[in-house]
Design a protein around this nucleic acid. Structure first.
Lengths: 335, 335
DNA sequence: ATGAAAGCGCTAACAA
DNA sequence: TTGTTAGCGCTTTCAT
């Protein structure tokens, strides 16, 4: 049987409270500290975090609910988060909800039952009702990628509007005036913002755009293929901006299947996954999101809410907005 | 305060044992069952899994240690595993060890301290010493992708040798006799197996191959780029087989940068990630691994060890070996 | 089938 | 600083 705190007490002749105090960083007389450490060593003692959790009502576990783990944007962020949380003693329970609101709710409930100390969520359900259990329990919630009105939570966002606007401006500067948008679902926040950026760029340039240049896809590879084919078939756009990675890959598939030459026949700006962009021929110019930075902010915020001083914990919920970057490839033709 | 089993007892006038028995699927008189259910409903009772865990010494949590979450092969498997485990009430704590033996060991120790009921591992350290804590505690271990001598564990593998052999045979049948191998690290099991398959195909065909056609890469994108450039520069191979996804992407980058036309100038067979293969121009022929099947086997095995009958738990450790598939694209030229 | 009671390993309040 | 004690919420004998 594994040694318990009692064994250590017996071995050292000290009381339970002293051992517990030692384990929790309290003050212990030097002489006793040595004794305790020797006993711990000898008996291979390790605290039972479950027992501690029962007492403290904290599991040192954080739940993460994301739409799709098979998505480099998500997995990069999670890798970063997990790394930081683990170094602080927190386990990360990940739940992939397959971009399904129902599954998302189930995942949150599951995590709540598991007594996660807090939750990190890239929300699918825009109303945020799925987060209620954590809200009611007053356990910290950190949202990624979109803020939700009415949910008390910190948020780490990317400036999607600016991202899209800069991309379109780059194309406009290259002389393109008819630019297609392979956009995302109309009810998805990030997609809305990227669409806004598209329009803002045209407005700032004082140029007109046409509704037919806009394709509202579904953020999937399949949707990217279809959207690209539609834009090429039905319009005379000379450039296309694709607003997420899956659709960018889909667009590349479409381009390949139609035998379109990139840059000569069509200019393209993609989104995310630098490595994919470099593997394309020619190299794709893309908008990249700062996943490491997002992860760091998310982890730091939840740790602050969980382990910070009382003032820190009580701070008003904050929203961090990060900027994207454009990495230039060879997929834009100067007209 | 959340309701406890005591509240339910009080509310129903029953004893603790009855409630507990109900909660654990024991027999309870119909009349009482109704009462208990009403009380649970009314008081919003939910079992405290931490308290239960303290008593039962099980956390209903499984640790997963993988080399790299940002790797579609890993993330696909994990998605599948997590899904199944969650539906059985198990939380999945994922640790990405960045293909580092030291971090891998730390991750396992972390998971052990977290009292995970079992561990799933795609091992980096081929000696398996990192798994000791779980071995000693006699907690189930399931290995993915490689078996480890001396570690009592179930394993779910892919027939990597056959995978490579079939790929090379396909190229030989197309008339290629000088086939380059963009292989993996010489000390990595899957890479060794794939290398064996390469040689086996040549031997079966009674044809010679040259050492210079073999490049032992490092399973990274960078390594793929370099390997491809080296093979093209230093040898006269007419085809290349790349043995993992990252290097396949790297090879595509290399091909693009060197301006090589695939199939006309060089035939290629890649590995994993069907979607990437379809996005390449021309579509890549690839070897795909059955990630869903792997996930299912892994999850089923660990659940069997954890929740199976005594006979099942006592069964000799088993090894499942799954077959890969070749998905044909347009990247092979018939000579 | 049900109830009473002990105890899992820890923390924390209180006393010394 | 240290020891004593109660109790977190549950499961599990052992009676009944």
């Amino acid at each position: 049987m594994a040694a318990t705190i009692k064994d250590i007490a017996k071995q050292t002749g000290l009381g339970l409270a002293t051992i517990s105090s030692y384990l929790n960083g309290g003050n212990v007389r030097e002489k006793n500290r040595v004794k305790i450490e020797a006993a711990i060593e000898e008996l291979h003692y390790e605290v039972n975090v479950v027992a501690r959790g029962l007492k403290t009502n904290r599991t040192k576990t954080i739940g993460v609910v994301i739409p799709e783990l098979n998505n480099i944007f998500c997995s990069e962020i999670i890798t970063g988060i997990e790394d930081i949380l683990r170094s602080h003693g927190y386990g990360t329970i990940i739940c992939d909800c397959r971009t399904d609101e129902k599954l998302e709710k189930e995942a949150v409930d599951f995590l709540y039952k598991k007594r996660a100390d807090g939750i990190i969520n890239m929300p699918v359900d825009p109303t945020g009702t799925h987060l209620q259990p954590f809200q009611k329990a007053d356990k910290p919630i950190v949202l990624i990628d979109r803020k939700i009105q009415g949910v008390e939570a910190d948020s780490v966002l990317v400036d999607n509007k600016a991202a899209a606007q800069h991309a379109i401006e780059l194309l406009l500067r290259a002389g393109h005036t008819k630019i297609g948008l392979l956009g995302g679902p109309e009810n998805v926040y990030t997609a809305q913002e990227r669409y806004k950026g598209y329009k803002a760029a045209y407005e700032a340039a004082g140029l007109p755009w046409e509704e037919s240049w806009i394709h509202h896809g579904d953020y999937t590879i399949r949707g990217g293929v279809e959207g690209l084919e539609k834009l090429v078939r039905d319009t005379d756009v000379t450039a296309v901006f694709v607003v997420n990675y899956e659709m960018t890959m889909g667009a590349m598939i479409g381009v390949n299947e139609l035998g379109i030459k990139i840059s000569e026949e069509l200019s393209v700006i993609g989104f995310d996954n630098l490595l994919f962009a470099r593997a394309c021929r020619p190299k794709l110019t893309i908008v990249t999101q700062p996943t490491d930075e997002i992860a760091k902010h998310v982890a730091d915020i939840i740790l602050m809410r969980l382990e910070g001083t009382e003032e820190e914990k009580a701070q008003a919920k904050k929203t961090v907005k990060l900027q994207t970057e454009i990495v230039e490839g060879k997929s834009i033709r100067d007209l």
